[in-house]
Simulated scan of single mutants.
Amino acid sequence: MKIAHITHTFPPYEAGTGRVCYYNALELARLGHDVTVFTSNHPPGEYEYPPEMTVKRLPTPMRLGNAPLMPGIVSQTRGFDIFHLHHPFIFGAELTRIASTLWRTPFVMTHHNDLITEGSRARQVMFDTYTPFSRTFSAGQASKYCVVSMDHAENCNLTPVYARNWDDVVEIPNGMDTAHFHAGIDTEFLYEKYADQGLTKDTPVVLLVAALDSAHTFKGVYTLIDSFAHLANKDALLMVVGDGDLRPTYQAYAQERGLGGRAIFPGKVPHEHLGAYYTLASVAVLPSTPPESFGMVLIEAQACGTPVIGSDIPGVRSVVEDGVTGYHVRPSDPKMLAEKIDMLLSDPVRAEQMGQAGLEMVFERYAWKSIAKKLEATYESVLASK
């Protein structure tokens, strides 16, 4: 099949949607398909991608936050068998629908999360207006809907679209890279790197991996920082991996809350080194609020044998088996988060058991190769009924 993936973000910009698109495209190409990714030329520069797939970084005359206007979606997608739209994508969803109509090419869609309405009143009005329009004009016209979990599908802004015909909804979760995330990753270089900041092999480490920019304020960084005021374990070190325009703000807040040297913000970490950070951690957390819909960092951490804590919200709770691979916590509840962190730090035997259970679970459910085969079958079913 000749497949076009259309996404608003893509590596080197590190965020969940782009990373999912990357592995979807790569593994489909390794199955023998001709796969092209259409994305924006932001951030600018030259980047190398695996030779199995083609990446076209299209000119972007304007952007609305993380939504680039890419007119080339229409002109450059003729001749494909199927489109795969990564949603939400203001401008891109509408252009994909237009291209689908012009070139008589069906499209499937993965809805990664709802739009973030927090912020200015103008932003809220705009998104509240756009969402019902998108349900009708663009998102509502897909041939199949790939959802990261049925839990999220039943509790998101597109639920009314899915409810028209649940037979068109296919659960295809996000995955993890088994080459980079697995048990037994060497961490010695991290102890050397952070020795001056108090890291030893006896130091409990609480880890969050997240984009630290204005588009990802829902990651719960403030909640995690606040939880340290309630921790019984005063030796624990907070490590927040990631970068973005809000990183200095979070660092300053950690200082205001009295964490001092107990908070480390390493910045952006190369993908090939990320597994070492998960392995180093005593516990990995994702205290997100909606519109978080899944939590790839949780399955990556579990693949490394690390117990996890995730918010009890649609989608995220589906990748953490409460009391077995980790714990659920109420969103925006730093005291409850601290209690669960302390439970894991005070019982290393239980933490190790949870880590092992999580490792076994994610390798069974979330390997990208098996996910690509589900996508392939979904595309084939769409084309067979065309």
Rank of each mutant, 00 (worst) to 15 (best):
H5F: 12
T7I: 11
T9W: 00
T9F: 02
R19F: 08
V20H: 11
Y23G: 07
A25M: 08
A25F: 05
H33S: 08
T36L: 09
V37Q: 02
G45Y: 09
P51L: 09
M53D: 05
T54R: 13
V55M: 07
V55Y: 03
R57Q: 11
M62R: 14
L64C: 02
L64E: 01
N66K: 13
G72H: 05
G72Y: 07
V74R: 10
S75I: 02
S75V: 01
S75F: 08
R78M: 13
F83G: 05
H84D: 13
L85H: 02
G92F: 07
A93I: 09
A93Y: 08
S100T: 12
L102V: 14
W103I: 01
R104T: 12
R104H: 15
H111F: 14
H112G: 08
G119A: 11
Q124R: 15
V125W: 13
M126R: 11
T129V: 08
T131H: 02
T131E: 15
P132T: 08
F133S: 06
R135S: 08
A139D: 14
A139H: 11
Y145E: 11
S149W: 06
M150K: 02
D151F: 00
A153R: 00
E154N: 06
C156H: 01
P160F: 10
P160I: 09
Y162T: 04
V170Q: 12
I172S: 08
G175D: 00
T178M: 12
T178A: 14
A179V: 10
G184H: 12
G184M: 10
D186A: 13
T187W: 07
E188I: 06
Y191R: 03
K193W: 01
K201R: 15
T203H: 06
P204A: 11
V205T: 05
L208M: 15
V209R: 03
V209G: 04
A210H: 02
D213V: 07
D213R: 13
H216Q: 10
H216T: 13
F218H: 14
F218Y: 15
D226Q: 13
S227R: 00
H230C: 09
L231T: 09
A236K: 01
M239E: 02
R247A: 11
R247Y: 00
Y253A: 04
Q255N: 09
L259C: 04
A263T: 04
F265G: 07
E272T: 13
L274K: 09
Y278H: 15
Y278V: 05
L280I: 04
V285K: 02
M296Q: 13
M296K: 03
L298N: 00
I299M: 07
E300W: 08
A301C: 10
S311Y: 01
P314H: 03
G315D: 01
R317G: 09
V319T: 15
H328Q: 08
V329W: 06
V329A: 02
V329S: 11
V329F: 10
D333F: 13
P334L: 10
A338E: 04
K340H: 10
I341P: 00
I341Q: 01
D347M: 08
V349E: 15
R350A: 15
A351P: 10
G355P: 00
G355N: 05
A357Q: 13
A377F: 06
E380D: 11
L383D: 09
